[in-house]
Amino acid sequence: MENIEKLKTIATQVRRDIVRMVNLAGSGHPGGSLSSADVLTALYFSVMDQAPERWRRDAEGQDAFILSAGHISPVYYSVLARRGYFPVSELATFRRFGARLQGHPEVKKGLPGVFQASGSLGQGLSVAAGIALGKKLSGDNHKVYCLCGDGESEEGQIWEAGMFAVHHSLGNLIAMTDWNGQQIDGPVASVAGEGDLEAKWKAWGWRVLVADGHDMEVVLKTFAEAKVSDGRPTMILWKTDMGRGISFMAGTHKWHGKVPSADQVAEALAELGETPLGDF
């Protein structure tokens, strides 16, 4: 229980970081960042076998994570900083000229913790599958995690990667979809009607887990289950709300890429409440 409370506190601080980063930068994507905050906090602070001091881009001897939906960089950067990959103060440089915290994650400027650039949607699952296959070939039993968006799953390459991972028996691959039902132009159902993701991934031959992506206890339990491989790749469909945690942002596509004003930031921070971790 203590662990769960700790993770909840971190997730709250991550949400505070997200809102403040996007406001400071004057651009960025708060909606999907907020919907993935609990899952990514759990992943980095409890689930993955990795640590900042032994991070290396080839992921040898450790778990790897690929953020396929690169636009939710605010949550990714906040979690990495809070975990100790780089100074928390660097979050203030998000989207600034010369910063390592580019608008979308990349590796050229050498931000620790990032394995691959992302942002052009639909590609990260292929990269994660490649790393998973590389680990298999090298006899490294570590896992590879990947987070995609549900809107992103309209990209055909996601399904190419889905076929590839099953065909090559990548039981060490744990993919996740942030199933918040929203994308830039509106609800996913109205934009592209991608239908029943659970049935689709099952038909593709994946082991599929569906779980609440905000209840920290459920999140940890689901990850524990996912880690026990049955030889197939695993897809966790996280049922989430875009904008979760901030009432005026929650459950709508309108905050996918919108910047909160100073007043709205104050309102959001008041609702989230302060944490002992402190703002950047």
Partner: peptide, 11 residues
């Protein structure tokens, strides 16, 4: 993409 992943993992 898979080739990039393999390269990242050292292949």
């Amino acid at each position: 993409g898979a080739a990039a992943g393999l390269a990242i993992s050292g292949k």
